[in-house]
Simulated assay, not measured.
Amino acid sequence: MPAPLDIRVDDLTSEASIGLVRQHLAGMHAQTPAESVHALDVAGLRHPSVTVWSAWRDGEIAGIGALARLGDEDGELKSMRVVDAHLGTGVGRAILRHILEAARAAGLTRVWLETGSDAPFLAARTLYASEGFDECAPFGSYRPDPASTFMTRAL
């Protein structure tokens, strides 16, 4: 059984966190046309409207996820990434549930997300659907894009 996760707010100053964000961006650009990559870089994740969490196991980073406030009641899930060595161990689900609980505690009533629509993103879409997210139309400033799947869930 894996060691427990320590999920905490991350200020994106550690090399481990910054490195995982950079790996996430590189992965998005490797799998998705540039015009369809909506992942935030480190500067974007440091915006005051965004909270980032990192998950740690045995002193090593296992994953990250973020929530961008879209208004008083809405938030957008951003930059979900699990370190390859931790895929399939529940890290992504734990981070997602942690973020949803934090969103609920902050008074948000709905969370939205954009993810890829092709095969490399199937595991992500399956995870989100299993946690109550439903596919929806583009939201906010997003436009229809065949490379994107949009999802939402009420809290």
Results as ranks from 00 to 15, higher is better:
V52K: 00
P146C: 05
A43L: 11
R143P: 00
F121H: 05
L127H: 04
A129P: 07
G59R: 02
F150R: 03
E131Q: 13
E76A: 11
R104C: 11
A55Y: 03
Q23M: 06
G59D: 09
G107M: 10
T32I: 13
W53G: 02
S54F: 07
L40R: 09
E76T: 02
E135K: 09
S79K: 00
T115C: 14
R97C: 14
S36I: 05
S130M: 04
R143K: 15
R125Q: 13
T32N: 13
D74K: 02
A129K: 07
H98E: 12
C136S: 14
M80F: 04
G63T: 07
M151N: 02
A119S: 08
L5G: 03
G71M: 03
D72N: 08
G132Q: 10
L96R: 02
P2N: 11
F121E: 00
E15A: 15
I99Q: 08
L20W: 05
I7S: 00
P146A: 09
A105R: 14
L96M: 15
Q23E: 14
P138S: 08
A147W: 14
E60S: 11
W112V: 03
A66V: 02
Q23I: 14
S117H: 01
G90P: 08
R22C: 09
S14T: 15
A68S: 12
W56T: 03
Q31S: 15
A66F: 04
G107A: 09
Q23C: 06
M28Y: 05
S117V: 02
S36L: 09
A154I: 05
Y128F: 15
H24N: 11
L67R: 08
R153T: 15
M80I: 11
V42G: 06
A66G: 14
A124Y: 04
A55F: 07
G65P: 04
R143A: 15
A137D: 15
R8T: 06
P33C: 11
S130Q: 10
T32G: 06
R125N: 06
V42Y: 10
A43P: 01
A123C: 02
L100E: 15
G63M: 03
D84Q: 10
L77H: 06
F150Y: 14
D41S: 07
R46P: 02
P48V: 01
D11F: 01
V91T: 15
H29K: 13
G59W: 09
S130C: 03
D41I: 06
A43S: 13
P48M: 04
G71A: 03
L108F: 12
D118H: 12
S117A: 14
H98F: 15
S54D: 01
M80A: 01
R110W: 05
L113C: 10
A94T: 11
P138D: 07
L122R: 13
I99P: 08
F121W: 06
G88D: 11
D118I: 10
R69M: 10
L20C: 04
T51V: 13
M151P: 00
L45Q: 05
L96A: 08
G27N: 04
E101L: 13
R22K: 13
V83E: 14
M151E: 01
M28W: 11
A147Q: 12
F121G: 01
R125I: 02
L40N: 04
V42D: 08
